[in-house]
Design a binder for these strands. Structure first.
Ligand code: FES
Ligand code: FES
Lengths: 161, 161
DNA sequence: ACTTACCCGAGTGTTTTAGTCAAGTATATT
DNA sequence: AATATACTTGACTAAAACACTCGGGTAAGT
């Protein structure tokens, strides 16, 4: 298994989408600002999320991304797998052939661990996360900061023009 | 979290030691042969395992490594941590500061996942693994192959001399 | 027309991985 | 004492993975 920023960013971005689920399409620029993830990198991630059918996109002004299903129906595991991170800890990829085509000593252990991880992450949906108080708190802080940042930008823009 | 061959090899090697726990010191050459792990790489891993006090070493002919405690008292988690693989899935390393010194949206999720993984791997000891039938089967196969390989080497040596 | 915002592929510096290699030290056997 | 065994240490490296960036495109709204 490897859980890197790719998988973490994907879940973070999808969770942002879940939090603002009622607000219509959300632009990547918004997510980038709120979550502190580079816009170009987000584009890369959302290309995969779209291909896997987890999000729908609308182009042009007023466009953006939205979840293809309600948040409660999107397990975290699906998001991570969509961006190509495997929740697999075996060396053989489940084939049981990593020692000269036969199973190695620890194959069963890693298989059990993988199941454990997969079960945990499929048991938690985006909707589940959104309803948590601690996450609402962070979201509120981010929306506040974003507003402040926008105000600043606006003021600066005015000052320049 | 990253679970790579380093961690997997460490557990495999330690399990080999646990299986042959009653046979006195085991040489890295034996483990290398049975488990198909490069000798030099094993040396690197065992340097860490020794520093962390998981194995004891004896030098010279008849020497080798042995577990410092009985297999039942060595959890798999300890072995993985000993070779520097972190069972941590947060980006912040548990500090809760990965978004401009504040906690990010997904911090709690990764913390729970880390706990889940840690609990699973500390609940399983080398002794526990040794007692499993599937693992005994693999071990038996390996001992068989090793004997065959040794016979071959012996025959070849005789043939050459 | 013009702006917004998604779409796509290629490229790139840095870090990690998965080892190797060489030289040295302690111990046991002959 | 000589020799072989086996642990000990440190430095080194090719190749892969990571975490992005850049540049140009296309569709939709106003
Ligand atoms: S991990 Fe599956 S055979 Fe080794
Ligand atoms: S993972 Fe801990 S703050 Fe982001």
């Amino acid at each position: 298994m490897r859980l890197t920023t790719k998988g973490r960013y994907a879940v973070t971005a999808m969770l942002d989408l879940a939090i603002h689920y009622e607000d219509g399409p959300i632009t990547l620029a918004d997510i980038s600002q709120r979550q502190g993830i580079s816009l170009s990198y987000l584009e890369q991630l959302f290309a995969k999320l779209r291909r896997k059918g987890l999000v729908d996109s609308t182009r042009g002004p007023g466009g953006g991304y939205r979840l293809s299903r309600i948040p409660a129906e999107i397990p975290v595991a699906d998001v991570i797998i969509a961006v190509d991170e495997k929740l697999e800890t075996t060396r053989c990829g489940g084939l049981g052939n990593c020692q000269e085509d036969e199973r190695c000593l620890t194959h069963d252990l890693w298989t059990e661990l993988s199941d454990q991880i997969y079960n945990f992450l499929s048991g938690i949906s985006l909707g589940n996360l959104v309803s948590r108080q601690t996450i609402q708190d962070v979201a509120a802080r981010q929306d506040g900061n974003q507003k402040i940042n926008l105000d600043t930008v606006e003021r600066e823009t005015v000052a320049v023009s």
